[in-house]
């Protein structure tokens, strides 16, 4: 190691000190604590009792909520990321066209992102309300029957998902930024070759934007697997556990049913699960990602 190198290393680690401290204090140590907790039966009220892997055994063999919760969480994340990606991408493409009032539109679509989640939850829950809500009024106006949006297994997760996608203004902005970074010459080249809008999209926009898509899909999957507020504030996991999302289930198990050891065990399994999903997306991306200069 040269001298300059070690000086650089010292500087780098100095710059990284706060982040490393954060990593240690707010991620690694708490995780170590959770690993410890997961090996105990602990109600949070009296001293924990060591039970080895008992919690994990219970989780995989006896837990009546775990599987339901995994399915609910996956459905939610899939729905929001799929619908959200299409929505955000589509709006971003529209915003990137020659349109009137682009600045205003850009703000309009971003705005939901900055609404406090609790505020969003309140207004959406009321709009979804099945007996008197405005969505059902609109349905009835066009001659359809009322839908029990949040009261029916089939619709609860999509309804909460739609509410979440509404707040995807940040993704729109990120896509838009990506679109604006595409050099005009590339698009013109397609035009010269006689290509139409579809060709431009398929052969220039999509490949050039694939890193942005990857970023959005990854952060979208990670954050939406961790969905919490809608279940906590509106549905409490109902109907029939169809919105018993993992983080809410972990929360309920610990804070409401006083099984902190057990909830730590679920957290770890869930953490591993998120890591697995993330890694899968990341690895599969090599197949569809396009790197400039490759």
């Amino acid at each position: 190691m040269t001298r300059a190198m070690s000086r650089n290393a010292r500087a780098a680690y100095l710059f990284l000190t706060p982040a490393i401290l954060g990593l240690v204090l707010y991620t690694l140590l708490p995780i170590a604590g959770i690993v410890g907790m997961s090996l105990t039966e602990w109600n949070g009220l009296v001293a924990p009792a060591f039970i080895g892997l008992g919690n994990f055994r219970e989780l995989f063999t006896q837990d009546m909520f775990f599987f339901t919760s995994v399915v609910a969480t996956l459905k939610f994340a899939l729905f929001t990321v799929a619908v959200g990606t299409v929505y955000a991408f589509f709006v971003a493409i529209l915003l990137n066209q020659r349109i009137y009032g682009r600045g205003i539109f850009r703000s309009i679509f971003f705005l939901p992102f900055i609404v406090p989640s609790i505020g969003a939850v309140i207004v959406w829950a009321w709009m979804y309300e099945s007996n008197f809500g405005v969505f059902n009024f609109l349905l009835q106006t066009i001659g359809l029957d009322k839908v029990k949006w949040l009261g029916e297994e089939a619709t609860a997760t999509p309804a909460l998902g739609l509410m979440t996608v509404w707040g995807f203004g940040n993704f729109i902005v990120i896509y838009l930024a990506g679109l604006q970074g595409i050099p005009r010459t590339y698009l013109e080249a397609v035009e010269i070759d006689g290509g139409n809008a579809w060709h431009k999209f398929r052969h220039v926009t999509l490949p050039l934007l694939s890193p942005v898509i990857l970023f959005n899909v990854l952060t979208g999957v990670v954050s939406n697997l961790q969905v919490f507020v809608p279940a906590m504030a509106i549905t409490k996991g109902s109907p029939n556990g169809s919105t018993l999302y993992m983080v809410y289930y972990i929360f309920r198990t610990g804070f409401q049913n006083n099984r902190f050891g057990y909830s730590a065990a679920i957290s770890l399994v869930f953490f591993a699960f998120i890591a697995l999903v993330t890694a899968t997306i990341f690895l599969s991306s090599r197949k569809w990602m396009f790197y400039e200069g490759q």
Binding site: A233, I234, K236
Partner: peptide
């Protein structure tokens, strides 16, 4: 009776 509605939305 109304359907058992969205908890917390009433």
């Amino acid at each position: 009776a109304p359907s058992v509605s969205d908890k917390n939305a009433m």
